[in-house]
């Protein structure tokens, strides 16, 4: 009975991880669709603000911290503080993104839509595109923050151990994915 129960659990964990992986493939296709436009239409995307460089460093750092979380849980070491730290880094990333958007609008005149007050011209699609792709990433990041918060809460209640840490694996995989996705977007908007 206990053997079949364990096997069933392993199978279920594997299936849950696969659900996440295939979901991430779907998200990749969503962003592939968005980025393909740039090549089809030879767009040059603006990316003047330095705040996005800061957010890139922050999100990479958060992923590194999460790697320690993954290592610690396998050794039954405490993880709740580290998960909380990743969550806070996620919030700092969010702050940087908002500062970046504000910087682009106020200091570089790059707006999502409407007329440029100086030229009176409608917003070029390249400018709108910049906001579309970065906000789309942020929309996915919100789910990552929610997942981190739930994982942190569960870690506080000692729900994870070296034998049972699916929640940590799921949240971590998604968070690393968001990091990679942001680095891709950052490089993409800077080098196209």
């Amino acid at each position: 009975m206990s053997t079949s129960y364990t096997l069933e659990n392993i199978r279920k964990e594997k299936a849950t991880m696969q659900l996440l992986w295939i979901g991430m493939v779907s998200i990749c296709m969503f962003f592939a669709g968005l980025t393909s436009l740039v090549f089809v239409d030879n767009m040059e995307i603006p990316s003047e603000s330095d705040w996005f460089l800061y957010s890139t460093v922050i999100v990479l750092f958060s992923s590194l911290v999460y790697l320690i979380v993954s290592r610690n849980i396998k050794r039954d070491k405490p993880v709740s503080f580290l998960i909380f730290m990743v969550f806070i880094l996620g919030l700092i990333f969010t702050y940087c993104q908002f500062q970046g958007w504000s910087d682009m609008r106020n200091n570089y005149g790059i707006i999502f839509t409407g007329e440029n007050p100086e030229t009176g011209q409608a917003t070029p699609k390249e400018h709108s595109y910049f906001y579309a792709i970065t906000v789309a990433h942020f929309a996915h990041l919100i789910f990552g923050l929610i997942a981190l918060f739930i994982t942190f809460f569960n870690a506080l209640r000692n729900k994870y151990s070296s034998k049972k840490f699916l929640g940590i694996k799921l949240a971590g995989t998604y968070w690393h994915f968001l990091t990679i996705l942001w680095v891709y977007i950052y490089l993409f908007i800077n080098y196209t």
């Binding site: 493939v25 779907s26 296709m29 669709g33 579309a132």
Partner: peptide, 14 residues
């Protein structure tokens, strides 16, 4: 479906 519907979503979003 998993590979193509997200592209329609990005298309519709714009």
């Amino acid at each position: 479906g998993v590979l193509s519907f997200p592209v329609l979503l990005s298309c519709g979003l714009l």
